[in-house]
């Protein structure tokens, strides 16, 4: 059984009298451990589709099943638990909380786990430190986001997505602010996590070179999805 099944999903936005279709009748099946990319122009609906799969936006019609469960039949708390423990988000924009340090930003998602995320004395911190080391930011552990460059902030957000041990990573232009070398490092990091932890990756990107490094490539155009 596929890990994710998107069934005839449609999402429209209403702006005044206009109804704008962002995603139109999209269907998709993703197996556990898949690494797929979605490319397309701005406004083609890539981010909206990612948000629907991540349960941070609700569809106008259609269903999304994750491990056989219909996401939008879940209650608000269950949907939050899904986002907290099964999904790791990498947003397209700066998403760190400005009043928290790098380490605190990493610890943030663990606060939403049942029991406040405590698995053992110092375990959360150790994991945060390990992930920061993997993205090459150990020395910035106590810095605030305003003290980091755009690329460094992006890497912190990447590390944060893995904090709760997700089964699925939804990455929206995750390497957008990174230089070529760091971009390659991050892609290697993603591949390692994909292989070692069997984490499913769905990555939205403009960059066709990045997309070519993924196992399965999809293209979105005017809300419609096509396999490449």
């Amino acid at each position: 059984m596929p890990q994710i099944v998107v069934q005839d999903i449609t999402k429209t936005y209403t702006v005044g009298a206009d109804v704008i279709p962002a995603v139109q009748n999209v269907s998709l099946a993703v197996e556990e451990g898949d690494f797929l990319s979605i490319v397309g122009h701005s406004g083609s609906g890539k981010t909206t589709l990612l948000s629907l799969i991540g349960g941070i936006s609700s569809p106008t019609s259609g269903r999304i099943l994750f491990e056989g469960k219909d996401l939008f039949a879940l209650g608000s708390d269950e949907l939050s638990e899904y986002r907290c423990s099964r999904v790791g988000f990498m947003f397209q924009f700066a998403s760190l909380l400005p009043m928290l340090t790098v380490k605190e930003n990493l610890l943030l998602p663990t606060c939403f786990r049942p029991g406040g995320g405590e698995t053992g004395p110092g375990q959360r911190e150790k994991k945060a430190e390990d992930l920061l080391r993997m993205v090459g930011l150990t020395e910035k552990i106590n810095a605030y986001p305003s003290q980091l460059s755009g690329g460094q902030q992006r890497r912190v957000a990447i590390a944060r997505a893995f904090m709760n041990g997700p089964a699925l990573i939804l990455a929206d232009e995750p390497t957008g602010d990174l230089d070529e070398e760091t971009e390659m490092d991050m892609m290697n990091f993603f591949r390692t996590m994909n292989k070692a932890e069997k984490i499913t990756f769905i990555m939205v990107t403009h960059n066709t070179d990045i997309a070519k490094q993924t196992q399965r490539r999809l293209r979105m155009h005017r809300g419609l999805l096509q396999e490449q």
Partner: peptide
């Protein structure tokens, strides 16, 4: 926006 980010990271309404 911060609350939106927290909700996306798994915060429940009660959080």
């Amino acid at each position: 926006r911060e609350i939106g980010i927290m909700r996306a990271l798994g915060a429940k309404e009660r959080h």
